[in-house]
Write a protein that binds this DNA or RNA. Structure first.
Lengths: 160, 160
DNA sequence: GTCGAATTACTCGGATATATAATGTCCGAGTCGGGCAGG
DNA sequence: CCTGCCCGACTCGGACATTATATATCCGAGTAATTCGAC
């Protein structure tokens, strides 16, 4: 069970877009250069963020990606869901009711699978923790340790 | 990010081993028949449970698998860790420090990655929720809805 | 009848294929900006 | 000098390879029960 690498990329890209505060779209190539990741593959992840409504995309010469809303309105859960999809990590296949059954199918279907319930309980905690943290919180944590990060990022962006 | 199907199998097998209360090892073939899953592949998952110290295995004619300790001493976290391995789902690759850097490497290495920290916080909640639930709890939840499950399971096992 | 050793069938365990998903690449459609001609 | 149109380059977007992981299978090593023979 490994999470897609794209989640990390997506989160960092959102932060960078906020720090740049470019006022205009930032192309994939710039972001890819900043993190040394394959541009085309990063583009694919950014597309997913657009579909999720986190970013907006602009085509054409000075095109690229922009934040669709402020970081305070984007949770870690939003980012993860955008890249990983909405489905749960644990997928109950109801093996309990297969085979030379224990109990009648009817009764089994009425009661939920306890293993599944336990898994969902844990996963709900995970999702709640992710939803409780906005990208603004994360950005603030970075700024606390490295106050000049936004300024330095802008500086690099304008020179490169 | 999908969890291995083997986790579901492993959890249900542990429950069944407890319900059977056979007093002797139960072979893979029986468990596989009960759930209609590929025997050889199930065997692989059970091996992982043995390596994790959740089950004990016995070779030979009347061999098979047994619980190494009571269900009260086995948490959902144990089962997940046995199948999925110990590593975290989110793996920080430190992309922030790659590329035409923002800030000096030295300073960056001193401060932890805030994105990673946020992810770990969520994942810790998940792990805590899993560790808080023992298989005994899960078994109790099943028994509450279907009190005869253990009896029926034994009955099936002895006839088949 | 009892004991012991060889045999045999059964089971685990890991090495080996196959299917599926994640990662990475490529090319076309669309669009914005700039250049150029005409007024 | 200003305005409108055309051209071209840039960017996104999705279709297409490639690699890694999960799923599934197979066969050998080892063991315990059973059988057979000897005492």
């Amino acid at each position: 069970m490994r999470m897609n690498e794209g989640v990390e990329w997506a989160a960092h890209c959102c932060l960078m877009l906020d720090w740049l505060d470019a006022g205009r779209p930032v192309p994939t190539a710039k972001l890819a250069a900043a993190f040394e990741v394959p541009p085309a593959y990063l583009n694919k992840q950014l597309q997913a963020l657009v579909r999720a409504g986190i970013l907006t995309s602009t085509a054409g010469v000075r095109g690229g990606f922009q934040l669709a809303r402020p970081l305070t309105k984007i949770t870690m859960m939003d980012v993860v869901a955008a890249i990983e999809g909405p489905e749960e990590a644990f997928q109950c296949t109801e093996i309990r009711q297969r085979g030379p059954g224990v109990g009648t199918p009817e009764r089994i279907l009425r009661t939920p699978c306890a293993v599944n319930a336990a898994m969902r309980r844990a996963e709900t905690q995970w999702r709640k923790a992710l939803a409780a943290q906005t990208l603004a919180d994360v950005s603030a944590a970075v700024t606390r340790k490295a106050p000049k990060v936004a300024e330095q990022t802008r500086e690099w962006y304008e020179t490169a």
